[in-house]
Amino acid sequence: MAKYAMVVDLNRCQGCRACTEACKIENNTGQGMFWMHVFRFEDGAFPETRMSFLPRPCQHCDNAPCVKVCPTGARFKREDGIVLTDPDRCIGCRYCELACPYGVNYFNWQKPKDSQYSDVISWDDPDIQAITGGAYPPYKNPDLDKEWGPEGRRTAGGNHAKGVMEKCTFCVQRVEQGSLPACVDTCPVTALRFGDISDSESPVSRFIRENEAWSLLEEAGTKPSVFYVGGKPPSHSYKEVERPKARV
């Protein structure tokens, strides 16, 4: 049984956020929902300023605080390492979001139709309806509603129903069909790698072995499955610049 992990090569990451976009298109996430978010940091005053980029997917921790606190078991961790949310069992208490030290959880504050950029696009416009046939978002990925894994649960995000939690799923619908997560697939400089860390000869394992890989917030004891090579962990003197329009 594979155990999936992701490695981010910060020596290569351009901070271009193509991974953020690929994730949003693949998973149809709503406005302000960044399952993958890329920090752009500035640190230090002119002229000693240093910049750094930090892609932040869900860390799919082995000792996951979110799985521990979930009152109904809607958030669970699979043998292959992926931490998933079952939207049919989630009661929307948002406890997982507050237990998570990385801030990777997003709650569906509004109905799916309203969260799909409807402040600009009116999906009911007859011209648009003529083309989209009333589906919103018109680019809806059918895989998101299917059941995945041996446990057979709708864990690919479903249709982002109002009132349930969601977060990066390592693109469970893609991984189970043998392809890579959308962010890994799209990175123009192969800064993101993904693979089976339980196989010591897999490219991911070798890459981690050959470089000093570190993890985010190791002191929190969450044992994340996302490793970083190059750069260094961000400190609180870092200031995030060029933030996306993230408030819904």
């Binding site: 351009q14 901070g15 271009c16 956020r17 953020t20 976009e21 949003k24 298109i25 406005q31 302000g32 950029y117 600009v120 696009i121 060029e242 996306p244 329009k245």
Partner: peptide
């Protein structure tokens, strides 16, 4: 130039305007 946009022809694309508002 910002990576999110292409000259003046993409600033109204909602997904890109979300990243670089």
């Amino acid at each position: 130039h910002m990576i999110e946009h292409k000259q003046s022809r993409s600033s109204f694309v909602p997904l890109l305007a979300e990243l670089a508002p």
